[in-house]
Amino acid sequence: MPAILEKTIAHVGSVLLGKEHHIKLALTCLLSRGHLLIEDLPGMGKTTMSHTLAKVLNLSYNRIQFTSDLLPADILGVSIYEKDASNFKFHPGPIFSQLVLADEINRTTPKSQSALLEAMEERQVTIEGQTRPLPAPFFVIATQNSNTQAGTFPLPESQLDRFLMRIELGYPDAAAERVLLKGEDRRAVLERLEPTMTVQQLQELQVEAEQVVASEAVLDYIQRLVQHTRQAPEFAYGLSPRGALALLACSRAWAFIENRSHVVPEDVQAVLPSVVEHRLREAADFSGHGGTALAQRLLTKVDVIG
């Protein structure tokens, strides 16, 4: 693992206890220039994680709390008439920062959701006929509560697809929880953290991650996986080419974090659940996006060699 990444993971890990794997996944997503969706129950550390990442990676950070009465202008910004200068002045919204935390994204209406999701896709915002680029790197971490919770607007498949990865944090293990209970306030720890890299360094790492070798054998493996989702009857629909690209990009980034110059099947397998779960649906399941079991089965049905 490159020393700088090791340090980053250790830093984040000091705030978010016992979640090293998830921190690595989040970094993978970031190195592949993708956006991250964290789905879990309230109080599991979703916000803490994104806040810590912003701090450690030295990114400008904004948080948008999504509520049911949030309007697109609250996200993107608005032009206001200034009496002194007697003209309109654009007041940029919270979206104009390098790392945006969209908290509880499924609590707002589809209209506001799509304003954010469009910005994510285009990496620019068009307001009142004027196109304004978003800062680079631009990274959105959205959190959402489980769909079954009251007062939610579940994201449709097409919008879920915009997120490169979706992770669930889950409960911490007993040891980590004990440290959490005994130790000081995590907020104080967060305040003390020093950035581990500059924005420039982060961008260099992104470029390096893209150069990891993916051999024919790995591409074959990815294609077999994708093909299986398209053919096996238990899948309601298969993975899109975008899904396949996402899988490859994430595998590369993961291999990079693992300090390898090439992708091995284990890298694909490590990122696969987070990359494909929210893009798949079981044929027998009409409501949810319960791809978790599917991803596991996909891994055990498609052989690495073939």
């Binding site: 091995v264 099947p265 284990e266 055990t300 049905k301 498609v302 690495v304």
Partner: peptide, 9 residues
């Protein structure tokens, strides 16, 4: 080796 088990694993 089981199906889907990578060489490193």
């Amino acid at each position: 080796r089981s199906v889907g088990e990578g060489p490193l694993d």
